[in-house]
Simulated scan of single mutants.
Amino acid sequence: MSERTTIKLETKDGIALLTLNRPEVLNSINTALIADMREAVAEVAADDEARVLVITGAGRGFCAGADLAAQGKRSEGMSVGQGVAHGMEIGFNPMMRELHELKKPIICAVNGTTAGGGVGLALVADIVIAAKSASFIQVFGPKLGLIPDLGTTWTLPRLIGRARALALTLTGDKLSAETAAEWGMIWKCVDDEKLMEEVMTLAGKLAKGPTGAFAEIRKAIDVSGHNTFAAQLDYERITQGQMGDHPNFVEGVTAFLQKREPKFKP
């Protein structure tokens, strides 16, 4: 395992805490951070002791998106646009797919400025909790002449609807954490000093839960947008039939009947 310089990863009591660690540039994403993130996510995926992943940022911001100072490095013969697309193909997009496909719950603790691709990184989490001082800014269109990326065009309209998603991405207006919570874009907004306490309490709760079932819940919610009601009922039936054979279901029923807390396996 290589030495990571752009993130920190600590695992304790079933919680893997991943901290973006480029505070001098608001944790903007460069190729080194992508490599470190992908390595860390693979490590969490393979670690049975890690039951939930928490992502946050060091310093005064969560993530300012792509490191524009590092852009423009491309292979000979590539246009600027081809270089951007290539960077997404080999780095940004695989990182996001691996996060979305992680079969463990992800909580994002947004601790400050979140801009551009940083919004997409935050919203890939299953649960997002933000400090009151945090904000979300879509800079792609009005500042850069680009479309939102890192999955933002997928997650944002599903969370807040087409009208609000378009207004945010066309204007680049700053969205406060409190409004984001009111709109349903994030789970909740808390006082700054309580952010990590709130997040780690929730992470501790999820770490004791049936990790595999949580991954299936995420998948069921995601596929529902493409299914008819009848098709979703069939999906639920098939999935329940498969999960009903897992020891965690037996443990859950037994614990309920015995009026105790269940002890789930990963």
Score class of each variant (00 low, 15 high):
N93S: 10
A207H: 11
E89G: 13
F92P: 03
G120C: 09
K188G: 13
K205T: 14
P94G: 11
G112N: 10
T153E: 09
I129Y: 09
A181G: 05
E89A: 15
G209Q: 12
A134T: 00
G112M: 06
T179M: 11
E98R: 02
M88R: 13
E98V: 00
A125V: 07
L175T: 06
G141C: 09
A115V: 15
A109Q: 07
E101R: 11
W187E: 14
L166V: 09
L159Q: 05
V80K: 11
P157D: 04
F92E: 13
E178C: 06
T171I: 10
G151A: 06
V190I: 05
K188R: 15
G117F: 02
P142C: 09
K143Q: 10
N111W: 03
E197Q: 10
G112S: 03
C108I: 01
V110G: 03
T113M: 14
N111F: 05
A131D: 09
M96L: 11
V119M: 07
T169K: 00
T201V: 10
V124S: 04
K194P: 03
W154R: 02
N93P: 02
L102I: 01
T169W: 00
F136V: 06
M95G: 05
I137V: 13
L144A: 13
E216I: 13
K205D: 13
G112Y: 02
G120D: 05
T113C: 12
R97V: 04
A203N: 11
T114I: 09
I160F: 00
P210Y: 09
A167F: 10
T152V: 11
G83W: 04
W183S: 07
L175F: 05
P94N: 10
S176R: 02
A122F: 02
F140Y: 13
L195G: 00
G184W: 05
L146F: 14
K103C: 07
